[in-house]
Write a protein that binds this DNA or RNA. Sequence first.
DNA 1: CTGAAAGCGCTAACAA
DNA 2: TTGTTAGCGCTTTCAG
Lengths: 349, 349
Amino acid sequence: MSQRRVGIRATIHDVAAQAGVSKSLVSLVLRDQPYVSAEKREAVLRAVDELSYRPNSVARSLASRHTHTIGVLVLDLHNPVFVEILDGLHSGADDPHLTTLLVSAGGDSERERRLVLSLLDLQVDGLVLVGHRLTTETVTQVMAEKPVVVVTRRDVRRRGLDTVCNDDRAGAGLAVAHLVELGHRNIWHLDGGRSAVAQDRRLGYQDAMQTHGLGAHTTVVGAGFSDDAGWQAAGAVLDAGERPTALFVANDFSALGAVARLEQAGVRVPADISVVGYDGMALAAMRRIDLTTVAQPLHAMGLLAARMLSARIQDPTRRARNTVLRPALIARSSSAGPPATADARSRER
Amino acid sequence: MSQRRVGIRATIHDVAAQAGVSKSLVSLVLRDQPYVSAEKREAVLRAVDELSYRPNSVARSLASRHTHTIGVLVLDLHNPVFVEILDGLHSGADDPHLTTLLVSAGGDSERERRLVLSLLDLQVDGLVLVGHRLTTETVTQVMAEKPVVVVTRRDVRRRGLDTVCNDDRAGAGLAVAHLVELGHRNIWHLDGGRSAVAQDRRLGYQDAMQTHGLGAHTTVVGAGFSDDAGWQAAGAVLDAGERPTALFVANDFSALGAVARLEQAGVRVPADISVVGYDGMALAAMRRIDLTTVAQPLHAMGLLAARMLSARIQDPTRRARNTVLRPALIARSSSAGPPATADARSRER
DNA sequence: CTGAAAGCGCTAACAA
DNA sequence: TTGTTAGCGCTTTCAG
């Protein structure tokens, strides 16, 4: 048995020596190529086992020009929405020979750029951007090197860029329809700010209000996507002369902040004001929270992104698709009918 | 100007040709080595720029035997506790030349093993395990190849394994002390199950109760680390003949589940029963939640792990440390004094 | 079926 | 200072 220093990995060379064959033969066996005699194959496998040999994937990549590795940039690991997309991504990339490398810069554009370039330098076979703050220029540059799929954003439009999103406008429509169906008419929107996603949800809200003949009640209060933003905006709602009976909030976190503010002011949810969020993060289903929300098909989005990427890696000439998935409303205990008015109460008798 | 096919990256060879120097000279310039004349350096840099050359780090690693890359295995990205540790890790590894590769298998031991081995095959310079479900055997095998730091677990004890944890027993003591100080005597514990961490917190609770002369009230209800586990266990508490005035729960998620169950039964928190969690995840600070908790210094733990790893990469012979950080109690609105008894009320006059 | 030989793109002595 | 020469560990023709 050949003697090796501890801590130093055996190489294909050691295995070849141990098995009494050539390097190439070992390589063939390891890559499951046909045309290797049973005896030799067995000898090689035995040597591999004895030496606990594992191929050096750096060397392998250098020679073979592909790494069986995909890189994933995540905008923000603190946001469960993205993490749930990652779950889908993992189930769509469950080939045991495929390694998924995650990277995140917490939304810092410059750091994101560096990380993505590092991934490229590591020769990943493709990239998934689960949300990002990259410049259009950087995205273009990256696409020129490797296949890229973008999830949740569709504002960066480039020929050849695959995207997976949910239909934010339609989703906002679902929220409004749900509330209208419960009997609400005075429905306000706490918006998400200036991002493309926030804008779509706002437009969806406005459209839907119009459609339901509620144009006169359309009211947008500036908020944001954070707990705190929802808290502040709800404060503004409370200060308004006339109060709505329902709030459609741009995302779940903000909705939670809004609920907290309302309850703190003694306004009951949903008895006095109903609240509907957006995203459908698993957290919203927690018993303590139990928020009605428009759920994006997060898992499906991740899964699809993984499939689109591998299709593109297989066939780089494949035509890029912009896939838009339909969200679904999940009714929970933060929404109910509007408080009965004296008028309504008398009619109920 | 040399002609290259699109989509194909320039190599050091192209740069050398373009600049009219040798490959080695380019390499020297790129690695900021001294002893390169200003003119040549400039010529190289210009060529690099013109060709948008970026070194292939796979080739670089193969030749130089190190990758400037560290691998991080995360037990569960859905748990904010781990994500907050990651934040610390990133700030401790903020060298722009260092890339941190994240990998997660959602607690699947076998997949974790494969991922960690992949990372090793990619020749990462070191590994951080932020929670893990690896067997002791796998950890030992991994340590034999590269420096490893384990965060949050200290049950796998190996010479040469660095670990960073918080002091769970002391933390449990803080929770009990807080409640005792508020006037509680009948304090129960909803535990976290059989893991080493859960056990430490349980033991810490039991010790502390003893210390405060409350041994007779010591009651442990089996629960777990999830929202749902807390919900169930709180149900059991409600069904008990005599009820405690305070609950110390094994972690924040479980505590949230418990609070939800109590409130659903009309038991007010903290008016009727106080609840203290453990971990100090940022989520617990959300307005809607506002949970009193024993906070681990998550950021510091991550930061420290990063520093320990780089120290170990620098000097592999460095003696391993088992660092235990002190947690701190954060009082929020889920804890208050016990409900005044008739007796106490009369005394208050 | 098997082995020899030529790289993959870069670093690292060693000369010059 | 700069260029030449060997590899790093593996894959991949191409003979045999």
